[in-house]
Simulated scan of single mutants.
Amino acid sequence: MAAVPTIELDGSSGEGGGQILRSALTLSMITGQPFRIRHIRANRPKPGLMRQHLMAVRAAAAVCRADVTHAEVGSTELTFMPRAIQGGVYEFAIGTAGSTTLVLQTLLPALLYADVPSVVRISGGTHNPKAPPAHFIDRAYLRLLQAMGAQVEFELKRFGFYPNGGGELCAAVWPCPGLRQLELVERGALRAAHAEAYVAALPLAIAQRELECVRKALGWSDDTLQPHPLSNDQGPGNALLVTLESEHVTEVFSAVGEKRVRAEAVAGGAILAAQRYLASGAAVGEHLGDQLMLPLALAGGGRYTVDHVSAHAITNAEVIAQFLPVTVTFEAGEQRSVCTISRVSE
């Protein structure tokens, strides 16, 4: 039997971040195709594997019993040779405040192809800058995966903020006979909207100031604004979540508090993203659009409108096309773009 050729990837291409590696890990597990990636995270201030990227590699290797070379912090290249995906019970500790959700998103699509159900527990950061918060996974990402036929249960057990971490999430994933394609051109009528601000080991006034910014900017009533003090041992930390539940899709826009950044500035980021999305008329926002692409490619096709096509999305499309017989196209409109995933004719 002929050996499966190794896919060669350049980690410096496009936006040059960790998503190239994470998408490659997911697709390698599912397709059985080994890959070699060089120049990992070459466009970042600290190139190479960080702890959260290394945990994604180790977690993927555990799930499919892969052979891996150069899996160490700071490594700028890596070879990954997968075997069959094994369902089961897995626990992974990042050991820092590295993103648990990015590790979970690496594993979750692959575990849909396992032989038996799986339970995954991951500890680390649950609400990080530049990563989807746990609530986004639960409300936005999983709603669309479930619409495609996946059965996943998710629980945020404990918040974890930068720099202390200590958070924990858990997901139960059942094997899926096949993901369904999805057409998501319109979001449908808005059914509910609310904002939550969480604080741990910080004054509740921070949450209240963030929510006041939401009230003023979006014109929401007080009963849609929810401050949540968490136990001190989950902090210090702060996160603002703006949730928009529409007929066909739920979006979550978030911002995470940082040292020496005013509550009003933190809130401004989430508010601006929500306003852009609402004005665009798109079905999904930038980040959900990035993450919807891979499941649709596994389903063999689909289409959705997105408020902004990022360099991240274009790079992800290029990686997907290396592993799967699909093409991803983006058609720009005045306020929204259309992303179409199509199977390549043999």
Rank of each mutant, 00 (worst) to 15 (best):
L49Y: 05
Y90S: 02
L111C: 07
G11H: 05
K259Q: 13
L54F: 07
M293S: 04
T69L: 03
A205S: 13
V4S: 10
L324P: 04
V319W: 09
G125L: 06
R303K: 12
G124H: 14
V249M: 02
G167P: 06
L78Q: 03
T101M: 11
E91F: 09
A66D: 11
G333E: 00
S254K: 05
K259L: 14
G178T: 03
Q181S: 13
R143Q: 15
I40W: 05
E168P: 02
E77V: 01
L184F: 04
R180L: 09
H228Y: 09
V68H: 07
E331V: 01
T340D: 01
D223M: 03
E186S: 14
F330H: 14
S345H: 09
V326R: 00
S231G: 14
V63R: 04
K130D: 15
E183D: 13
A299P: 02
F161A: 04
S345T: 14
V284T: 00
A297G: 01
G257K: 03
L9M: 05
M81T: 14
M50V: 12
L278I: 04
Q52L: 00
A332H: 14
S12I: 00
C176R: 06
M1E: 12
A217D: 14
Q234W: 06
H228Q: 15
A2N: 13
T101F: 10
K157V: 04
R260A: 13
R41E: 02
A270F: 02
A270W: 03
L9C: 02
G48C: 03
G95C: 09
P325N: 10
R303Q: 15
D10Y: 03
G124E: 13
A192Q: 14
I40P: 01
T329R: 14
L244V: 07
L107T: 08
I341K: 04
I40C: 04
L25I: 10
G160R: 06
A313K: 00
F154E: 12
S337Q: 03
L27R: 08
H194W: 14
E245P: 02
G167Q: 10
G18R: 07
L190W: 06
G124C: 12
Q52F: 00
P82K: 12
G269Q: 15
V252E: 11
G269L: 10
H308W: 09
G289H: 02
T101S: 15
V242T: 05
A239E: 11
A217I: 04
A313E: 06
Q105V: 01
L202E: 13
A150P: 02
Q291M: 09
F136W: 15
L21R: 07
A42P: 03
L142C: 08
S28V: 02
E251P: 00
E186N: 11
L145I: 05
E15F: 06
A93E: 15
R58H: 13
V120Y: 08
P227A: 10
S12Q: 05
V328P: 01
A93R: 15
L241N: 12
R41I: 01
E258K: 10
Q291V: 00
A217L: 08
L272C: 08
G237H: 12
M55I: 11
R262F: 12
P203E: 07
T6L: 03
A255V: 04
V119R: 15
C213K: 12
C176S: 07
W174Y: 11
C64V: 00
I122D: 14
L272Y: 08
Q33G: 09
A239N: 13
G268L: 02
A24F: 11
E155Q: 13
Q226T: 10
A279Q: 15
G333F: 00
P229Y: 11
F136I: 01
